[in-house]
């Protein structure tokens, strides 16, 4: 399996580590109620089909990627930087 990192191009799976669904990007506000936090922390769908998930290019550019992967076929159709260059300064 390979992922096309927007910074580095197509790279081998072993350069990446996985962290679950991309819903982790949507951090609730500090004053959100505990039910929202519970949802954010623990509740995940288990879709059969395309889903967005987070991968860390730790052995490459250290970017976090949002990757669209089909859980049925393992086909990776797209990958985006969690923090595009335009969005911040690193």
């Amino acid at each position: 399996m390979r992922i096309t990192c927007p910074n580095c191009g197509q790279r081998d799976l072993r350069e990446f580590t996985y962290m679950g669904h991309a819903v982790a990007l949507n951090r609730p506000a500090a004053d959100a109620d505990l039910a929202q936090w519970d949802d954010y922390l623990h509740n995940r769908d288990n879709p059969a089909g395309p889903t967005d998930e987070l991968w860390y290019h730790g052995a490459g550019c250290t970017a976090w990627l949002k990757v669209r992967r089909d859980t049925v076929t393992h086909v990776i159709s797209d990958a985006w930087l969690v923090m595009p260059p335009s969005k911040g300064v690193k």
Partner: peptide, 22 residues
């Protein structure tokens, strides 16, 4: 050490994109 580095990268890129920090 490696786990913390990965965590900092995530927090910075996912939640603190507007910050000027490297």
């Amino acid at each position: 050490a490696a786990q913390v580095m990965k965590h900092l990268d995530f927090v910075r890129q996912a939640h603190c994109a507007q910050m000027q920090v490297a």
